[in-house]
Design a protein around this nucleic acid. Sequence first.
DNA 1: CATGAATGAGGTTTCATTCAT
DNA 2: TATGAATGAAACCTCATTCAT
Lengths: 211, 211, 211, 211
Amino acid sequence: MTGQLRADAKRNRDQILAAARDLLVNQGVGVPMEEIARHAGVGVGTLYRRFPDRIALLRALSVHTVEHMTDLARTALRTEPDAWTALSRFVRECVALRLGALRSIVDPQLHTALHQSDEVRSARKDLLRIVEQMIDAAQRDGSMRTDVGVVDVAMLVSLHLKRPFDVPGVLAEEMDARLTQLMLDGLRPGCATPLPGKPTSFADVEWHADH
Amino acid sequence: MTGQLRADAKRNRDQILAAARDLLVNQGVGVPMEEIARHAGVGVGTLYRRFPDRIALLRALSVHTVEHMTDLARTALRTEPDAWTALSRFVRECVALRLGALRSIVDPQLHTALHQSDEVRSARKDLLRIVEQMIDAAQRDGSMRTDVGVVDVAMLVSLHLKRPFDVPGVLAEEMDARLTQLMLDGLRPGCATPLPGKPTSFADVEWHADH
Amino acid sequence: MTGQLRADAKRNRDQILAAARDLLVNQGVGVPMEEIARHAGVGVGTLYRRFPDRIALLRALSVHTVEHMTDLARTALRTEPDAWTALSRFVRECVALRLGALRSIVDPQLHTALHQSDEVRSARKDLLRIVEQMIDAAQRDGSMRTDVGVVDVAMLVSLHLKRPFDVPGVLAEEMDARLTQLMLDGLRPGCATPLPGKPTSFADVEWHADH
Amino acid sequence: MTGQLRADAKRNRDQILAAARDLLVNQGVGVPMEEIARHAGVGVGTLYRRFPDRIALLRALSVHTVEHMTDLARTALRTEPDAWTALSRFVRECVALRLGALRSIVDPQLHTALHQSDEVRSARKDLLRIVEQMIDAAQRDGSMRTDVGVVDVAMLVSLHLKRPFDVPGVLAEEMDARLTQLMLDGLRPGCATPLPGKPTSFADVEWHADH
DNA sequence: CATGAATGAGGTTTCATTCAT
DNA sequence: TATGAATGAAACCTCATTCAT
């Protein structure tokens, strides 16, 4: 019974998260809670039972997404022949995810609120740690410029969290791919121009971890 | 007399635009109209007299900003010794502008609405035209990879329209500068990896001009 | 359970309609929605949940009222010994209803908006059909002039949709009754003066039905 | 100079009244003061200089209209061969005037406010007096039923102050003419049914005169 | 004296959240 | 426990009126 119920509950939770993700990606941060509930096929009441308020929903979404990214990173690292290839693949996959849900990140206040959660911070730490491994390895074998750190890469990826606008005659996916490639090329050693400041590594941020 | 009155009105208009810009940059697209009015030191009524509704305000802001960017581009092209330097400077200046007002662009619906205005489209055309000149020149003298077009550059810049989040121990300005440089390096010929698709030039979009 | 809930909702809906009717009759079309809500003993939110906007409320009210009139017409036709008596009674009852809610009809734009609803049009058709039956019968047995049609009668009745102003020393009800009688007398054959144009029957309007 | 100015002022005043009348007739009581000013070709300031507030404008309009009706009544009485013909003509002319400006009369509060002006009351008295003369004469020569008084007629006419709704296939003017004729026929002796109450004459209301 | 800019109270509507069923 | 009805604070916008030019 409890098992049954839990399964139901889990399913509800997932449907809600999926609906929230879709709507946030497509309609912006303003989507009414009621619409999210409707898309998830549940009543508002149920939504609020699972997530006490809007910010809790966004937090859960955030954690969910970051965990997904961590999986992608781990798999890439394990599967690809070398670190740079792994990193490129990871970055491309992140962008392809259309992580619009994190677009909320665009609102400074929301962003702050989001990161006041230990769960979010911890998920993010896991992700940063593994990405840093990729970066380190790539830099060691000379396939990546050495004056950049995890934070630089994270910021670059986060720039892509928004959906690219439609350009007449260019597919959004293609545009995405082009921009991503340009970004990756900029991380290569061949064309490196000196950067202001120093790279920020995982160790430098882990105690605050609210960027 | 009417002139005098107009001066007042003009001043109000400018104050409103300035206030709107600030607040939009710092608080996101959701800022209440009343708060904008308060910051501008006028009543809501005045705000609505100048800009019939929220979208009209955003449009005006958009045009204003784009025109400013066009000035920057023109000046850079005139002042700098070569095209690539001009383009780099222009890109850095755009980013430094913290064009947060255009962050509205992050909401697909808002973006569409924004571009239903001839004034916006035309301002944008002017900007694209001059940026394309810079790009062409830089490509001709071999300082820029030749497989990118205005639209790629415009999209790259637009990625910066949002304020970078605070990373502990790193100044936002520094972070901005680093990311910008990485992006610019990616546009150089030295490290170019083939891009999917073809570059989109001004001529390809000018008839629609709503990207 | 759902049934029970619905019962509550139904009651609220009816209270809102009743309150709206009262206030519209007594204070004109301009009554604030909040006041309607307050009089109905519910929050504004509830009002808006039932009726998405002001016009929807007016439409519902309109349908409700027209249906009531249809009932009156049917009953009169069934109960009274002859058609003219039935028609007179129906007209008197309509007037007595103080159909002030329909006073909205006084505003051309509102009127147009009102009739863009199929429900309203269909309710009105039902009413017109039955009234036409009364008229036809009355005309056949010679108790009513034959140069008038439903539309004439409908328009005459609609003239009464506004509350008569207080005349010192005359009760509003009495005034109403006198005017109604004068109108009814004008529909008799005894004093008929030729009318310009031709009578409009139900068949002539039913396809448009938006008068 | 003063003469010149006064002429200007007079012209302004008349233009405002005309514009107000048009707009009220066509768009309902809700017309913004600014729109009235625009239609009159003056600024709001000027409008407010002439009429301290909205109600003052409506009052002036009311007086203006009633005086016009009085003129019509007098002329009809002087010109037509007999009293009933004069009365019929007067009634038809009033209806044709489309006295929509007085539609304000539809809002009870407005109506009350309107009649708190001596000027309005006095203009109305003049009108009632002359109409009563017509009625008396018509009743004396047997062309009008004797159980009705000025107030009945006034109320009947006032019912026509609203614009008739468009009925597909029937011209508004024709509809107006038909209804008016039906009303007039009801005032004839031929088909008279006993009325409840007693007729109210001018003398009965003149001391209060705020119906 | 005319103008139209500015004001702000007040009406309309939306939506996050609570709560009865 | 799921539902969706109810709530009301807060946003948006309008317009009567005042006031500086």
